[in-house]
Design a protein around this nucleic acid. Structure first.
Lengths: 110, 110
DNA sequence: TGCAGGTATTCACATATTTGCATAATTGAC
DNA sequence: GTCAATTATGCAAATATGTGAATACCTGCA
C-alpha cells in the first residue's frame, strides 16, 4: 500500500531540495572524500560555523548524511552514496553545457 | 579557464533547484515517456494551465526540457536524459527509505 | 480582419528559505 | 562544579518561490 504518486513526488522533491543549495553541494563533495568533522568542513568551506551547522542539519534530517558524536567533535559522513552519483550526473550535464557554450563563443570569434 | 568552484556549485544548485518541486518532477516523468504537448501534460496532471506553463518555463530556462511550437500547440521533450537518470537515482533512495521504514513498523507489530 | 484554441505572462498574496549574530547545549579537562 | 572548545539553535531581516485568476500573446482558419 504505497502512498499516491503525488505524495511520492512531494517526498522526492524534498530530497531534491536538500541538495539544491551551493553550500550543501560543497559539503556533500567534501564528504564524498570521506567522513569529516564539522570543524574540518568549516575550515575547507570558510563559512560561518552556524551556516555549516544549519546546512548539516538539513542534510541530516533528509537522511542524506549521518552524524556521530566523538567526544567534543561530531563526525559526518554520507549516508547513501547514490546521492553523490545523482548530483554528479547533474554536474556533468552542467559541465557539458558550459563547454558547449564556450565552444560557441570560440567559433563566433574565429 | 573554468569558473571557481563556488560558482560551479551555484550553477549546479540552480540545476538541482529546477528539479526540486513536485509538479516539475511529475512533468519530467511525463516527458520521460516521450514528448508531450502542453495540453497533454495538463490533462495528465490535472492542474491549472498557468501552473503547468510556469513550471515548463523554469525547466526550459534551466535547459532541462526543450519546447517546439507546432501550429497552435507546443511540444516539450527532455533535453538531456541524464537528468531523469539523476532524479531516478534519488527516487530509488527515497523508495528504499520508505520500504525500510515500513519494515521497521512491521517488526514492531510482530 | 476577426475569431477561437492553445500557451505564456502578469499580478497580488502567501509561504518558505537563507543568513549573520548572539546564545544555548554538550563534552572533556582541570 | 567551572572553564574552554565544539556544535546546535533562536531570532529577525532579506530574499526567493509557488499559486490561482485574469489577461495578453500567438497561430490557424474562415
Amino acid at each position: 500500500m504505497l502512498p499516491p504518486r503525488s505524495e511520492l513526488n512531494r517526498l522526492h522533491a524534498e530530497l531534491c531540495t536538500a541538495v539544491a543549495d551551493p553550500v550543501r553541494i560543497a559539503i556533500l563533495y567534501t564528504l564524498a572524500d570521506g567522513p569529516h568533522f564539522v570543524n574540518g568542513i568549516q575550515e575547507q568551506l570558510e563559512l560561518p560555523q552556524s551556516t555549516i551547522s544549519r546546512h548539516l542539519r538539513i542534510l541530516r534530517t533528509s537522511g542524506i548524511v549521518a552524524g556521530e558524536r566523538q567526544g567534543r567533535l561530531v563526525m559526518y559522513r554520507l549516508a547513501d552514496h547514490r546521492v553523490i552519483e545523482a548530483i554528479d550526473l547533474l554536474r556533468q550535464v552542467m559541465a557539458d553545457r558550459i563547454t558547449a557554450r564556450a565552444d560557441t563563443i570560440t567559433q563566433l570569434q574565429e
